[in-house]
Write a protein that binds this DNA or RNA. Structure first.
Length: 588
RNA sequence: GCCCUCGUAGCUCAGUGGAUAGAGCGCGGGUCUCCGGAACCCGAAGCGAAGGUUCGAUUCCUUUCGAGGGCACCA
């Protein structure tokens, strides 16, 4: 189904053809939402730009366009305002017709992809040598939300956890453990993530301060690569325990991921280098195999290469990522590959994408996209750390979120004292985890944000507690009205008359457009903005001064219509929050 | 030095080549005998700066100031 905006765009384009001739079809009709409801819902700004070209006054052109428009079923007669704006106001009758079609649709108008697009979302991707920490939060949350939106569209999504399970850090760990913890080899089952964390710290310190150990660590990497048994057993133990730990976090966050670490691509690395060399796209420079691409410069202004084989013969993440692209395109048949990492890696991905395209691995129309996000900052506006300067473990952060949320729930409950301890715990979990996710997703991707418990757990404003409360309260309307909102007839005649009903209806019909936009732009905060706006529209609808009666509305037809509007609002909230990875609760 | 991201209200954040730049918190004032006030209404207060393109720029371009980040064998 076409969106309102598309309908108007098509009509304006048709009018343009009528007014200026066939080339009118090529003109952007410049249809936009209006900045102010007094100007209607949409406006076309095309007349102003045409004035010079046609040597006529914009208002006259606008008048001709309006005369040629056929939108009677959708809009009130368009008005010309200001220097030549054409203003469109959607007819309430049209809104109720559209909503009437959506009320029986569990997808609320979001179309299912006719031709699912094979899509890979590469996200979370922790380094397996360490416990998951706050640095992994954003990729995990954002990647999951993006995957959920694309899955809801019916795309064929593969969620890949490109874990760091290879490289020098494992050499350090292996060597350190081999020297100091013979026990681990005998009893790998006793080995826990906490041990890994402290081993890593110790190993890192030795690596930085003891050249002999550093050498041994590098040799341990060689052992690992050459299949030496002890090194490999240790490596497998580390990886297994790390992944077990990571999936505890994922389960808690309700996130599914397929682990496919860097080591998966190891066998493909030599041929990546060979292929670039054979095609003449890579050359040896300073002992390393480099791809020099147009437009990338180093600090001295010289060329900046993609290094695919180091001078010591080893491979790095450029090589692995290139192998990854090749595999994902050729074996996985991906048509869209989305990398969710922090924005500092933007240049790396720009270069790797360019290299992959240069060698022809990426067919026309296949999209490689980097979703880069900003840092999580502490109250001091520095990268978020513990008071002692250590990293903040994800597990502890989630624990604290739930504990703090429990306090919020308790304070709410004091007004009513009707929730059981189990209910409170469930609500605290939903609110706490929801708060962390929602706060993250509601920020513009590229900007850093300050991690602030108070703001994210506030009951007012654009927060998870507010949204969850909004949902719970609407559900309670059903209970109080003695109606099962989920069992309303699927063809309730919708009466959209009061301004607050019109405003709410306009919000509801926008849902498919917003989902579409998030899927294209990969910006989850567009969805949080929308859901917040929807909640506010409902708030006005339900307000005793500005809104309408609902539970006790008369006659029955009006009451049913308004209950349906409430139900649809709840449904969109639940669906929308669900696409952000946030679970709702029926009571709060 | 080059490149990237970003500078919007006291604070935390949205936003658009178009008509008067929006929320939340905080602040000042007011309303409703309140379907669970997630109340509601009014008000003060802002596009870092300067140029340019444009009928129109907060948005695009240039310069400049400021913040953070990246810049050859870590990922």
């Amino acid at each position: 189904m076409k969106s309102l905006r598309e309908l108007i765009e098509e009509a304006v384009t048709e009018a343009l053809v009528a007014v200026v001739g066939p080339e009118g079809a090529e003109i952007d009709p410049l249809v936009r939402p209006t900045p102010d409801p007094q100007f209607g819902d949409y406006q076309s700004n095309v007349a102003m730009g045409l004035a010079k070209r046609l040597r006529r006054k914009p208002a006259e052109i606008a008048a001709d366009l309006v005369a040629a428009l056929h939108l009677d079923a959708v809009c009130e007669p368009p008005e010309i305002a200001g220097p030549g704006f054409i203003n469109f106001r959607i007819r309430p009758a049209y809104l109720s017709e559209v909503l009437g079609r959506l009320q029986a649709d569990p997808r609320v108008g979001v179309p299912l992809a006719e031709q699912p697009e094979r899509t890979i979302v590469d996200f979370s991707s922790p380094n397996l040598a360490k416990e998951m920490h706050v640095g992994h939060l954003r990729s995990t949350i954002i990647g999951d939300a993006i995957a959920r939106v694309l899955e809801f569209q019916g795309q064929d999504v593969l969620r890949l956890n490109h874990v760091g399970d290879w490289g020098t850090q494992f050499g350090m760990l292996i060597q350190h453990v081999r020297e100091t913890q013979p026990d681990v080899l005998q009893h790998p089952e006793r080995f826990r993530i906490d041990d890994l964390e402290s081993f890593y710290r110790e190993a890192k310190q030795r690596f930085d301060n003891d050249p002999a150990f550093a050498d041994a660590a590098r040799r341990a990497v060689v052992d690992l690569q050459s299949g030496e048994e002890v090194a490999n057993r240790l490596w497998q133990t580390f990886c297994a325990e790390s992944l077990r730990h990571a999936h505890e976090i994922y389960d808690r966050l309700d996130i599914r991921l397929i682990d496919r670490g860097e080591s998966f691509y190891n066998p493909m690395l030599p041929e990546v280098v060979e292929e670039f060399l054979a095609r003449g796209l890579a050359v040896e420079a300073e002992g390393a195999v480099c791809i020099f691409l147009e437009g990338f410069k180093n600090r001295e202004g010289g060329p900046l290469p993609v290094i695919i084989r180091k001078s010591d013969g080893g491979y790095n993440y450029d090589t692995t990522d290139l192998a990854g692209i090749k595999h994902r395109v050729q074996v996985e048949q991906a048509r869209r590959i989305i990398y969710v990492t922090d924005i500092r890696q933007r240049q790396h991905f720009d270069m790797v994408f360019a290299a992959a395209r240069a060698i022809g691995w990426v067919p026309e129309g296949t999209k490689l996209e980097h979703v880069g996000f900003g840092m999580v900052l502490g109250p001091d506006r520095r990268p978020f750390k513990t008071r002692e300067g250590g990293t903040i473990k994800l597990k502890e952060l989630l624990d604290e979120a739930e504990a703090r949320a429990a306090g919020v729930v308790e304070a709410q409950d004091e007004r009513r004292r009707e929730l059981s301890p189990e209910q409170k715990a469930e609500i605290a979990r939903a609110v706490g985890l929801g708060a962390v996710k929602y706060f993250d997703l509601s920020h513009n991707l590229a900007s850093d944000y300050v991690f602030d418990w108070e703001t994210m757990l506030a009951l007012d404003g654009n927060t998870a507690p507010y949204m969850l409360y909004a949902y719970a309260r609407i559900r309670s309307i059903g209970r109080r009205a003695g109606v099962d909102l989920d069992a309303l007839p699927s063809d309730v005649p919708l009466i959209i008359e009061h301004p607050s009903e019109v405003a709410l209806a306009k919000e509801l019909v926008q849902f498919p457009t917003v989902i579409q936009q998030v899927a294209v732009d990969l910006r989850p905060h567009l969805l949080t903005e929308y859901l917040y706006g929807l909640s506010r529209a409902f708030s006005t609808f339900y307000d005793r001064e500005r809104g309408v009666r609902v539970i006790d509305a008369e006659p029955e037809g009006v009451r049913l219509s308004r209950l349906r509007l409430a139900e649809m609002t709840a449904r969109v909230l639940k669906l929308g929050l669900g696409l952000l990875g946030i679970n709702v609760v029926e009571q709060m």
